[in-house]
């Protein structure tokens, strides 16, 4: 069952990646990247049990934190860019 879960997670990650490639705007891309990131955390956690080495869980914790920070960071950048564009116009 754990194998099935890992395969499903990989398939979902692939779908997210494909979506990120063919997305029309930056927000779709960030959403896909966010999905990809949370699934990475799950994948690492599941794999650590599949291979029976719980040490991987530390890496999953780190990924959970990095993923959050990266999403907020990217969105900050796009928000700044939008504000800058509005100032250019007005």
């Amino acid at each position: 069952m754990l194998t099935l879960t890992v395969v499903v997670i990989l398939a979902v990650m692939l779908a997210g990646l494909a979506r990120a490639f063919f997305a029309r705007n930056v927000y779709d891309r960030v959403l896909a990247a966010n999905l990809f990131g949370t699934k990475t955390v799950l994948l690492i956690a599941a794999i650590s049990y599949l291979f029976g080495s719980p040490d991987f869980l530390d890496i999953a914790v780190v990924y959970a934190l990095i993923n959050y920070i990266s999403v907020i960071g990217v969105l900050r950048v796009t928000e700044m860019r939008v504000i800058a564009q509005q100032e250019d116009k007005g």
């Binding site: 705007n25 927000y27 959403l31 999403v71 907020i72 969105l75 796009t78 939008v82």
Partner: peptide
């Protein structure tokens, strides 16, 4: 929080 940030950024970006 991430999904709120995303929605807000998209809204402010005019989507």
């Amino acid at each position: 929080t991430a999904s709120h940030a995303l929605a807000k950024a998209a809204w402010q970006g005019g989507v």
